[in-house]
Amino acid sequence: MDNCAVAQKMSPKDYKSDVKPIWCAGCGDFSVLSAITKALAALSLPPEQVAVVSGIGCSSRIPAYTSVYGFHGVHGRALPIATGLKIARPDLTVLVTGGDGDGFSIGGNHFLHACRRNVDMTYVVMDNQVYGMTKGQASPTTAPDWEGSKLTPEGAGINPFHPLVVALAAGANFIARCSSSDPNNVAQIIAEGIRHPGFSLIQVLSPCVTFRPEQKDWKRMVRTAVVDATDDPARAARRLMTDDGFNVGKVLYKGSREPFRPGAEACFQVDDLEAGFAVGQ
């Protein structure tokens, strides 16, 4: 009987704040918020040892809706904030939340380098193929012929970006796709991503019922991916390149690359370094 484990048993509500989300009724992000709190509870993480970092956008509002430490920064820069935090404070569990615009457009360069750098953190991207907070513009994952935006009334006209393939090519260590229609599965995958060392990317199809009402059908379109876990990037690449984006519920790639953990124990006093300036040294 492990008394400590019993004493630390946590419930999802221990990770929820009492702030009411700004989201529209029916938004997929409610499920993802709930999945995050479930995952943290399942791992029994002390709330003060967890930080949720975000940029700007609907889904980037999540930190304030949790009871853990949070950082709601500027548009597109959640990953660098989280990178600095995790490297400076490796004892913390760091989650990053955001949307497809924040992560893949304005934050695209950081996305590439976060995959490459492989710092031990978990990035949950709520992908709804639209900019919701600015009232409905095409994002990097929007189909080229989507005519729902006043900004690009004839469609964006450019091909969507495939975040999971890019992540694989850039070196992400854990790649999964889920659907907000199955929050328990999302919770399970997030918990797995947190446990897996290195940079974990979890794309969650999370409908925008206001600007992309047709996405309400996603819950009927998604299917559980019929795939085995693989640590072979070539196999994962084929898998990701050939699917239609609706294979969900599974980890699509899980690598074993060592996370980036710079840092060392102090072995000098600062004043010892002065000797290097002395003439003749």
């Binding site: 500027v74 935090l85 490297i87 404070r89 360069n109």
Partner: peptide, 12 residues
Amino acid sequence: ASINQIIGASYG
């Protein structure tokens, strides 16, 4: 990235 990394580390 560098400015935001230092903000994250300092927040820590």
